[in-house]
Write a protein that binds this DNA or RNA. Structure first.
Lengths: 191, 191
DNA sequence: GTCTATAGGTGGATAGAC
DNA sequence: GTCTATCCACCTATAGAC
């Protein structure tokens, strides 16, 4: 893993914002260059092809997501609290008028380079493994109650949050998202 | 409402497929022209700008969706059965390796022309009105059971189905979608 | 309605100087 | 690492002949 130069991480920050707001096919090297007041050629020095840039975006996003998940486990012992904080991660993205990076890339899936497709699935897999464990533990200790396997529930919950986010963005609807997310979590809380 | 020429509807058919698979920013007049063995200039005769094409796509999609919803109401009196058939609409899109047209456009929302944004919201509004009514009726006659308002539930259900679709497509996962959709519907079936 | 031809712009990407 | 300059492919869109 290359230790990131400051230039690279500034580039990734701008690219991430654009990708989350407009999609991978919705921004160009020109857009990034303009915002950073550098040239497109300089960008190609750091990320030779757009596929490289996209892969770096997913890697970075995943790292920060993983860190957030670890923090949740460390700081919140209760399963319901963990899920609420998980949903808050999505919410914080939405208030900044962004879509989840990987949800956005999922929409564009068939147009992405293979490397990005592979890393994208790995991101979702990691999310679902984490959710599965939290759901399983919560049901065992009696704080959660739901039908089906934890894995199935994890699929459902991930889909619900991504989908609620997707639709809410068209309505500038952070409030809408919050209501839906709370409802979804309340449904699996033990009575 | 212009009665559609045969050329126009053939163009829309191809454009719809491309839009559902690759997104509005993921296909071009050139792609359509190639598949229909005509020139790009001919396409511009029928749809002067890409915004016009996009608007026509949403209008057409909404018409066929509305027709399907009416058919469901006509043929299925039971609320649970109606919801199952509603989910089947999504499933039939997915098996063709497509995403819901409007779910795809929702991802690209901020890059779309204003006219398309407006029509997109109207599509979701209509869907949620229909779902609300079905959910409300089902709870009244005792076939469904859920917390919160029918409108809230409609938001949740729509988000869940769109999101499950979004993620499932990355896994070539019709089966995955079906499982998630069944689970979501089972959650609101009366015991 | 469909064509040829073309305009005017932007996309990702590279060569080579500094 | 960043620049200028440039390549070539592709994009949406238009003019005008048939």
């Amino acid at each position: 893993m290359a230790s990131e130069s400051e230039s690279s991480s500034r580039i990734l920050g701008v690219a991430e914002e654009l990708a989350q707001r407009r999609g991978f096919n919705g921004f160009s090297y020109g857009d990034i260059a303009e915002r950073l007041s550098i040239t497109k050629a300089s960008l190609h020095y750091h990320f030779p092809s757009k596929a490289d840039l996209g892969q770096a975006l997913i890697a970075r996003y995943r790292q920060s997501f993983d860190a957030a998940l670890h923090a949740i486990v460390r700081e919140s012992p209760d399963a319901r609290r963990r899920l609420r904080r998980y949903a808050d991660l999505y919410c914080n993205v939405l208030v900044d008028d962004r879509m989840c990076l990987c949800g956005m890339f999922a929409a564009e899936y068939s147009t992405l380079p293979e490397t990005m497709q592979t890393d994208l699935k790995a991101f979702f897999d990691a999310n679902e493994r984490w959710l599965s464990r939290v759901l399983d533990a919560g049901r065992r200790d009696g704080t959660l109650a739901f039908h089906g396997t934890p894995k199935e529930r994890a699929h459902l919950l991930l889909g619900t949050l991504e989908g609620a986010m997707l639709v809410a963005r068209a309505y500038d609807g952070v409030k809408r998202f919050r209501t839906v997310a709370r409802r979804a979590l309340a449904d699996i809380a033990a009575p």
